[in-house]
Amino acid sequence: MSLRTGAPPNYARRRIIDRIMRALTVVATATAVVPLVLILGYVLVVGGSGLSVSFFTETYQAPLMGDFTDPTLVDPAVGAPEGGANPDDPYADLDLGALTGATPAEPTDGHGSIDLSQVSSGGGVLHGIVGTLLVTLVGLLLALPVGLLAGVFLAEYDNNWLATATRFCTDVLSGAPSIVIGVVAYILIVQQTRTFSGLAGSIAIALLMVPTITRTTEEILRLVPQTVREAAMGLGAPTWYTTFTVVIPTALTGIVTGVLLAFARGAGETAPLILTVLGNNTLSVNMLAPIAALPLLAYRYTESPFPTEIQLAWSTSFVLVVLVLFINIALRLATRSRLRGR
């Protein structure tokens, strides 16, 4: 045997296999990352190019012919300023345009055809930002205690039939299409209360968040070394005290990651919102009434015939991405340990 002199006989083969495996992992990584970068980059470039200050400070404005900043222009759909709504009309507050997907600027018989590319729109998505923040944060507030405590139960008090059943249900629920949750919320809340509302949306979003928060909390708590629990136990701490003073603080970063994943998913959901919050073209903070949301705006704008509103859809997507990123960073900073050496 000449193990010490020169390479072993299968060295060349091992080296080739090593290189092939490494190349495969690089290709797979690139396949995963490249589309992501392209999508995000396209949203940032196209969406960012249409941004202005007013996009963040104003709400919806109907598209207008020509220069929308000219106050003398007339809304092509309405023709002349309205004479006031019928006081007896119970649906006066309801935006029919948002309901039907029709926009006021759509060519109508009375006005003949118009050049769509000449239509421009001002306004912004402030109502969408406010609506998304409200609906998602209230959803998070509803989901957080349930998800966290259920995760604690699964991690710290396992080995019983309830834990097994809960684990199975959360797995099924986290795989459920979000439209299913939307339909459930529509039937149980919207139909019962006889109104679309921000709160119904929050509840639907919370239902989507709970399984994610529960399972990530459980997984992360299981990663906390048993020795740390024993240290608290050895000092005479009951399990609940140990969990809240030692285990959760140790696992905080991981739990925050799970919560952020849930938040990002909730903020981007569209299907359940169509069936619950409905949408609103004005700024509203009333959670018991229809409210705007960024994904809904983006969805509706993409259906618009006007290029100017397609551009709005891109910008809205951009704002949604940045909003989630911003909340992500803010939460990380807020929960960061201020101690050295962690």
Binding site: P225, V228, E230, A231, A232, G234, P249, T250, S337, L339
Partner: peptide, 9 residues
């Protein structure tokens, strides 16, 4: 304990 197990505080 066998391995030092201080809390992360």
């Amino acid at each position: 304990f066998q391995r030092p197990n201080p809390f992360a505080s």
